[in-house]
Amino acid sequence: MTLALDISNLSKTYANGAEALKGIDLQVEAGDFFALLGPNGAGKSTAIGIICSLVNKSHGTVKVFGHDIDSDKEAAKSCIGLVPQEFNFNQFEPVIEIVINQAGYYGMPRREASERAEHYVQQLGLWDKRRTMARELSGGMKRRLMIARALVHQPRLLILDEPTAGVDIETRRSMWEFMQETNAQGTTIILTTHYLEEAESLCRNIAIIDRGKMVEHTAMSKLLLMLHVETFILNLREPLQQVPQLQEYKLQLLNETTLSVEINKQQSLNQLFDELTQRNICVLSMRNKTNRLEELFLRITGNEWK
């Protein structure tokens, strides 16, 4: 098994004494599509910063494809492509120049850098904007520019720190497709996101950091199996005046035609519908109250679930 990323006992204490990371271990296999989740301030961006040499670590080791970021820094850095959370390009440079320059920083000769930059700018749908100053791009375009820039040196490990934050649904979907294609071509991807639906549908493995500690590190499918209770929202045809009395289910009337019901692993939806039908309650439609991963995430980070 080749590890794209191998983090051991990583800690970071900032100068003001804040402990952002408290000895985390993390392994990401080569070729994986990996979700790194956690609430705001959990330490995700600090961890990413350390991996990419933007933040100095306090303790621990980080290896990227076997290259230690301290003793074999250049080789480790060559393997990584980073799409950070904040826009970090020169807003006063044309799109194509930003991507060409990034290739240049990785030692690519100008001509090759231009060819690569054109390829990725085209792939990310920015060809018509290649001569436009970066500041004139829309938010979604700026995110795509950062992806093109991160890919131009063809990294083996792509780290995406909230790449779809603030982009419209259409752009997000096309970015998902692009990320999946990139992963299918062999690039390992680590994704942080607050859209848990995104992590659930794209990632095979997941780690959750909370208050600087690793609280979960497993396969996505295994994690979802841990979900004991799901909450469904039922839209009813006829209004109800009071909550129906179903002993085995926890029900709540959200408004007179909307019912919320909690169902655990041992209960079946068929039984629920049978009981509702017996009481002449007709269900028009049904949906999950929250995304399944979101529900788990809240329980894990809220320390409610073990």
Binding site: C52, S53, E74, K77, N90, Y105, R149
Partner: peptide
Amino acid sequence: YMSKFAHFVEEMLVSPMP
């Protein structure tokens, strides 16, 4: 300073450039 202020110095810092 601009590259620090607007964070695009990070383009160089993440690269293997000495």
